[in-house]
Amino acid sequence: MVVDQLSDAELDRLFQAFADTTRRDIMRRVTVGEYSVTGLAALYAMSFAAVQKHVAVLERASLVTKEKRGREQIVRGNHDGLEKARRLLDEYEAIWRQRVARIADILAEK
């Protein structure tokens, strides 16, 4: 069982990373395969620089890794799987803690 906590700064980065549709889409893709930044940029109606910026946000949140291969930058989901799973479980826990608080409120009604 892993008991350590994410810092507020880490949580902020994680929330920020997931707060955007394009970044969520990039995450879905690089979790199952590897893409070059150029390859990703071709998928969206936005500039190469804009996509590169999205990748940088994901990288800061430790959700992806970037690696130089020749002239390309290859983006992959961070396969430190347990770490990611732990982060996700932290989030899931927050959802349930809120539910329990709401249940307690309902039960307190007379």
Binding site: M1, G81, L82, R86, Y92, V100, I103, A104, L107, A108
Partner: peptide, 24 residues
Amino acid sequence: MTVISSTKNPEALSFILVAEFDAD
């Protein structure tokens, strides 16, 4: 505290939450 404990098990992709309520 309503939530007594929570157990996160990333290896098994599971989560357990234990809560106690003042109701039967």
